[in-house]
Design a protein around this nucleic acid. Structure first.
Lengths: 345, 345
DNA sequence: TTTTTTTACGCAATCGTTCCCGGCAACGTT
DNA sequence: AACGTTGCCGGGAACGATTGCGTAAAAAAA
């Protein structure tokens, strides 16, 4: 398929028939006689003919490839999602082109630019932390590019999306801490512009209020880069520790924030959960191997990827423009372990 | 770029000139007058023209996309490699199509089939644990498909490859254990068909011999699926623990084996390093957060990816067939932590 | 002024497929 | 015998871009 590349012409020549006949025979058209089909099939087999997908793409104006934009590939949560995306794509004969925003809006815009210039058939995206201007994406969407959001979504563009019930995840995590006797619960969270932040923060707040605990704004620390830069997390945690009434528990709302927080606490020799309890969103399998083992909110990342790709296929393979959009909400799981053991227990 | 798609023809029509002129003007050909160029440029800008990469691919017979085959995307080591690959690819205007073998030779063959049918310009591959028949890949390579191996390589195909010094990594890890007083050192390793296994096992053995310790075959446990199936690891570790002379240390030669081993030891309530010390190949950042923190051999995964993609570009962009092939060997780093503290120390 | 050279552009083939039009046999119908 | 049906197949125009070759007009040389 590199140097020679058998084409439909070669078959036509070998059999002394026209390319149109070969093409039709291969596609099993009714206007070709059984024997000709047979002949063509055998010849194609013999020459090891493979249709050229590039030529097909040009003709059909679709590439059967889907662009994926995430902030970071080398992040367990996202690589699990990509795994899910890929599993569906593979089954359906699509391929996936992954690119990373590294949490930069500029880089994200370039990714979009690049992916569309590669004429992907659709776009799966989890927004970067910096993104506040969606106009370019919106423009693409309005021009007809199928878009599906996952994880970090936006309501600004009316399309399919897949998330976990972030509110619920945060609510349950917070409530769990409260039930275990913690009352001064801090929240280490991402940029306030992200949908996940808003939702998780709301879950956290509601859980406090429902349990007659007054939310304390100094207990909420935003890390703009969501743990991608460790020093940011370290600083946030340190600030929490210098408060007059130190928190007795920390709820971290993302993978990297959780590990960053853990790292900081360990470095400072703070005991978990005796000095401070810790619960965090986390998808790493190692969480249970830590000492103390970590109580986490686990997201069904693989399923998120699968769902997102399924919805994408729905858009891409639909004959007429899709009118009704779906927001698929999956359930997070709270895994209770040692890092949030009952206070003074 | 979806419904309308501005083409070179639109520009030609708008300006009342031929498409060839437009094409040449856009490519800044010398045979086009400055004013015509100016006109074309402006018009292209105004209509927001984007060249169609599919048409270009068809013409130039290259897609500027590189296929990547790994066993598992959602594995820190490989996702870090992919990150490295992607970083170089992005800079050079290539895109990367990732697919997974899930350690299955059959699936790997299908991946190859799929990727080549998508006419990738080259192939970056880390072999699956099951792979013993390389004939198909060899055939592709002989037909002119550029191939670069990384991590799990094969000498059967003469081409570029990138690995870490597996021998050295294993040697140093083992020697470190010996220096810290351990003498009954077991080795938990992958399928014996993999290049990494051979090399790491050799490093382990040599280190023993160099320190006057006789290698004991019962201390070497192969896990065919390399930890992808936890029960396999569990069983291997359990077998080690039932030996008459139980090992006092375990050296695990991959990410998943290390965590699988750790999990098993934890579950059985075995203290590390008091009862058994542990050192493993691992690329997770969480290793240092474990209690005890884990002594690991860390591989420069990101750099492996970068190097592999660089070598690929060398192949893909070279005018004449490359004759001289390179095996790039990067250095692993031994991070000494608590899980291998001096014996009885 | 005539010839040669340069400049600047258009025509058409090409990449590999598909598919819309025809067209030509060999039937069956009136 | 003349006509309409089928059945089967080929020609050639797309899809979007590049490029070798040909050529008119303008510029330079004779």
């Amino acid at each position: 398929m590199k140097f020679e590349a058998v084409t439909i012409k070669d078959i036509a020549k070998a059999l002394g028939i026209s390319t149109s006949t070969v093409s039709r025979a291969l596609r099993d058209s009714y206007e070709i006689s059984a024997e000709t089909k047979q002949l063509v099939m055998e010849c194609a087999e013999k020459l090891n003919y493979r249709p050229n997908p590039v030529a097909l793409s040009l003709k059909e104006r679709r590439t059967r490839s889907i662009g994926v934009v995430v902030c970071e590939i080398a992040n367990g949560f996202f690589s699990q999602i990509i795994n899910g995306i890929e599993s569906i794509a593979y089954d359906k004969g699509y391929n996936v082109i992954v690119s990373q925003s590294h949490e930069s809006a500029e880089r994200e815009a370039m990714d979009l630019q690049y992916l569309t210039s590669r004429s992907v058939d659709g776009l799966l995206i989890s927004l970067s932390t910096e993104t506040n201007d969606l106009s370019y994406l919106k423009e693409l969407h309005e021009k007809g590019l199928p878009v599906v959001f996952f994880d970090r979504i936006s309501e600004e563009i009316h399309t399919h999306s897949v998330i976990v019930d972030n509110f619920k995840g945060a609510y349950e995590a917070t409530e769990h801490l409260i039930h275990n006797g913690y009352r001064n619960i801090a929240c280490l969270t991402n940029s306030e512009f992200l949908s996940i932040t808003t939702e998780r923060l709301a879950g956290y707040r509601e859980a406090l209020i429902a349990n007659d605990i007054k939310p304390y704004s100094a207990y909420v620390k935003h890390c703009f880069y969501g743990g991608m830069i460790f020093s940011e997390v370290e600083e946030a945690v340190n600030k929490l520790l210098t408060l007059k009434t130190k928190p007795d528990a920390i709820f971290a709302t993302s993978d990297k924030l959780t590990t960053g927080c853990l790292k900081t606490l360990k470095r400072r020799g703070i005991r978990i959960p005796e000095d401070i309890a810790l619960v965090g969103f986390n998808n790493s399998e190692i969480a249970e191997l830590l000492s103390p083992s970590l109580t986490v909110v686990r997201q069904p990342a693989y399923e998120i990827g699968k769902a997102a790709m399924e919805l994408m296929l729905q858009l891409v393979e639909s004959k007429r423009p899709v009118q009704h959009f779906e927001k698929r909400v999956l359930l997070p799981e709270l895994h209770i372990r040692e890092s949030s053991s009952p206070k003074n227990g």
